[in-house]
Write a protein that binds this DNA or RNA. Structure first.
Length: 270
DNA sequence: ACTATTTCCTGGATGC
DNA sequence: TGCATCCAGGAAATAG
């Protein structure tokens, strides 16, 4: 499941490999298209544009485009990977996988392919992308605590709310709460200053460490090279129901909050 | 203005 | 072995 660290890894890989390349042709696939912009608009915006950069914003991958021979930004191609989306850079000879929904042919002779079996991913073209919420890694402890002021919803749900924080998903929300020693069901507004400080620090630490290890490969996540990440080996609670807590050996619990499984240590988290 | 719930979608795991 | 059912979850839509 691509969350901030996985999306960051993919965006960095893409930036390294295709920055400066030019989109020669665009193919958009099939029936119920996972598009947020009309297909014709996406095709027109991408056709013959130079990719001046690729970066992450929240869980979105932003491709900055330029009209050939100009300096200013033309538009941005926005890709959200959903649950199972992948962006791959490959040779045209490579067999096209099932569930390939978009292919960009580049002047260098390579292709960028968007593959997404579960179709939760989204493609769009915009002028000036702004994420709906704050970037977790660029948010001060004070700003962070302010986001949750007066919220009655469980802290786990608040962390997943992209309008508050952009980029945190189920894995890193659980991991950050473990590091902070806070149970996922706690009402957001009930956390005290120290708990917010620990959560802010824990979240930034876990995101940074996960980026360092290339993200978590749980189901089918791979980066733009097809490489898996390694952070899943470091998970302290996510996916560890019934297994001993790495800190105190108490079995990890799993509960469902707002329809999402949430993992925590009943002894280490209050 | 919030919050909670449902829906979308497919492949893999599980159960009988 | 085969078929049905369940489950994973990001975010938009819907309901309260």
């Amino acid at each position: 499941m691509p969350e901030l660290p996985e999306v960051e890894t993919i965006a960095r890989g893409l930036a390294k490999r295709i920055t400066g390349d030019v989109i020669e042709s665009v193919w958009l696939g099939s029936k119920p298209e996972p598009l947020k912009s009309p297909a014709a608009q996406i095709e027109a915006a991408l056709q013959s544009k130079k990719i001046s950069g690729v970066r992450r914003s929240g869980k979105h991958i932003v491709f900055d485009l330029q009209a050939p021979g100009t300096k200013g930004s033309a538009a941005q191609w926005i890709v959200h990977l959903g649950m199972t989306g992948r962006l791959l850079v490959c040779s045209p000879d490579q067999e096209t996988e099932k569930h390939t929904h978009a292919v960009l042919r580049l002047e260098s002779g390579r292709e960028v392919r968007f593959v997404d079996p579960r179709r939760f991913g989204r493609l769009a073209v915009v002028e000036n992308f702004t994420p709906p919420g704050a970037e977790p890694l660029n948010t001060s402890a004070e700003q962070f605590a302010t986001l949750f002021r007066g919220r009655k919803t469980p802290i786990k749900s608040a962390l997943l709310n992209q309008k508050l924080l952009s980029g945190v998903g189920n894995i890193y929300a659980d991991e950050a709460l473990f590091r902070a020693g806070v149970r996922p069901r706690r009402r957001a507004a009930s956390l005290n200053r120290e708990e917010f400080a620990r959560l802010h620090k824990g979240l930034q630490q876990v995101l940074k460490e996960a980026i360092r290890l290339g993200g978590s490969s749980i189901s089918d996540y791979v980066d733009s090279n097809g490489e898996e990440g390694f952070f899943q080996l470091k998970h302290r609670v996510y996916g560890r129901e019934g297994l001993p807590c790495r800190r105190c050996k108490t079995p990890i619990k799993r509960v469902v909050i707002a329809g999402r499984s949430s993992h925590y240590c009943p002894k280490c988290q209050k």
